[in-house]
Amino acid sequence: MYNRMKTAAAEIRKLAIQAMAAAGYGHIGGSMSICDVLAVLYEKILNIEPKNPQKKDRDWVVLSKGHSGPALYAALAYKGYFDKKELLSLNKNGTNLPSHCDRLKTRGIDLSTGSLGQGISLGMGAAYGNKIQGIDSYVYIILGDGELQEGQVWEAVQFGAHHNIDNAILIVDNNKRQLDGYVEEVCRQYNLRDKFLSFGYQVFEADGHDTKDIYEKLLKAKATKKPSAVILDTQKGYGCCFAEIEGFNHYMVITEEMAQKAISEIDKRLKRQLC
């Protein structure tokens, strides 16, 4: 089972890198840091039917850090929401795959995001709406650690606790970096765990690049039946060799050559990881 998730994570990384290389650029750092959690969600957690993306009782994914759309598109293509070839149209004129997630353009995108801080409120609305209609569904909201600087996030967190929105699970991609540099240097977040705890959340922490750990913590979060947050310790650019060594990897120019090297490296690492 874990091999399947590891393989999915590698495939999602490769597809996302190929998509960004076809565009010639992209938000590589934040896309790479969420590939493992996307693999866990789409392989093992979500109740979804790629052939029926509007299924009433589906689980929802809201990528509040919408600039990491290429990773989510890669996950959707990997699961068969649309043809993998379509990934090569990323950011091209008239594409269905814009840099930031758009529910009206992309099959499988539940809500449009891109203005940081808004996805969490949207996700809570979807969770609450499903709940009051008696629909058994979970909404997974993926936030960036830099994004947590937005005040709206904490409005939503407080709201979620007060209204006991237990069918929305917050996932924080704690990759320690934001556009302008390290979060610690731009505007430090203090103790993330304590912040969520103080709002009354159940908090779980996982190695964000260990699919087994992520899977187990997401299951625990679901089992609490309380508002919960899963904080993933991640590395911006993880798994993509050229991004891993780049100081500024939020957004990079990516050539086909760079992509090919990174993909070969992903394959090599995967072989070592598979048990």
């Binding site: 969490i120 409120s121 949207l122 809570m124 609450y128 009051i132 939503a156």
Partner: peptide
């Protein structure tokens, strides 16, 4: 919380509310 309230409402409406 006006910002959250609007976003929350938008999310609600995505489910048919």
């Amino acid at each position: 919380m006006e910002a959250h309230g609007i976003g929350f409402s938008a999310g609600l409406s995505a489910t048919g509310i």
